[in-house]
Design a protein around this nucleic acid. Structure first.
Lengths: 223, 223
DNA sequence: TAGATTGTTAATCGATTAACAATC
DNA sequence: TAGATTGTTAATCGATTAACAATC
């Protein structure tokens, strides 16, 4: 048992970051009725090399069979468990602008084992409004919704409000935060924050394009 | 000159990924009237260690002064240039659901040098609708909008439509794509795709939380 | 000058990749 | 058995970090 725990502890970050992609592809295969797959097939679907797939999967356990491949159902279940998808996670969304509403209605969340359990805002004009099956609540009511649950907070407010919302989430006992608002959040060590930076991604795309154009120009000058 | 080009070519991926964060912090400092800063200060604001800041910035050029620090304006300008923010990039958004509308109205884009130049959908019910200063166009009219411009395509459709939209973008000459729809896109080598995977980030948060809880349990059993 | 802070070097760490023995 | 494919090893590559000489 100790060995299992040490192994689990040690799944490399780069591997963890790829597990959702493997799980998505495996779920799609299962839907199509595919029973068995190989590292080569998974690699092609996810867009990496097969050695990486084998390395990654071997970090979790010995789920493949030499000469045969991987059982889609079994591997899917093991990755689900590893990612905590066998528990129920309550997702609370703070900020009910277009972005918050987009997330609230996102079918991919439910499909991947998350339940949107609360919608919050501070604007009296939207508090009380019904969005799908939920009613937008005052941010002050957050603690009542998250108490005693495995909750993940999603910040979908303007950047200027992000830190205050993060403070409120932490105070309510939320220790996993997805930050779509931009900016750096100050939170206690025990709290995980994952930023999603759309504007930064655009800048990275601009950088990459500019560099490519530049390299092409260089080739013209000195082929 | 050749040396400059070789250097530029060689900015490591990990550094490129952090440039937008440096630029954001520097812009905020400039707004507050701060003239000069240090690697230590930048590091604190971005949430990394100062050695990394110095290493990153030294990849771009020699913009600091030993014993003094960095000039906020100057460094800001250099990073802007490196990220291509001195050109104008036309952002076209495909998919005018809540997510697409959230992006269309995002003030952070404009602030960071991007111009939303086109909004597209295939649903006749929304084509022609005005959103901010633009009118939603038929996806078929994409080529007219992007012709002759540095364009970045943003896919904000459901996952099921993502590949078709990517094909349309590529056919129209767009070679930088931000994919918010999920899934893996097949595109030519000369096209850059950056995925933004909200659902995957939630799964990673769930994984990290589960591992932390598990480690705490372990400590209780064997302190 | 003395104090401060960069840019760079070297050491360390982690991730990727290729190759192949193990084994179904 | 012969062919296929994994799991693992070793080599390579890239990123991080600590330390400090250079220098304002």
């Amino acid at each position: 048992m100790a060995a299992t725990e040490l192994r689990r502890r040690g799944v490399p970050d780069a591997t963890v970051a790829r597990l959702p992609a493997y799980l998505r592809v495996l779920a799609a295969m299962a839907d199509r009725g595919v029973r068995s797959t190989s590292s080569e097939e998974l690699a092609a679907a996810v867009g990496v090399h097969s050695a990486k797939v084998r390395k990654d999967l071997s970090q979790l356990g010995t789920y493949g069979v030499r000469g045969v491949g991987y059982d889609v159902q079994h591997l899917s279940l093991e990755i689900s468990r590893e990612l905590g998808m066998t528990r129920e996670w309550a997702v609370v969304i703070v900020g009910m602008g277009h972005l918050g509403r987009a997330l609230a209605g996102h079918r991919g969340f439910f499909a991947r084992g998350f339940r949107v359990a609360g919608l919050f805002d501070v604007d009296p004009a939207v508090i009380g409004e019904r969005v799908g099956e939920l009613t937008i609540q005052d941010l002050a009511d957050l603690p009542g919704t998250v108490r005693g649950r495995d909750a993940i907070g999603v910040i979908a407010t303007p950047e200027s409000a992000a830190q205050q919302v993060a403070d409120a989430l932490v105070a309510a006992g939320v220790s996993s935060i997805l930050n779509l608002a931009g900016g750096n959040l100050a939170v206690p060590d025990a709290v995980d924050v994952r930023p999603v930076e759309v504007a930064a991604e655009l800048q990275i795309l601009a950088f990459l394009r500019q560099r490519r154009d530049f390299d092409v120009d260089l080739e013209r000058v000195a082929p």
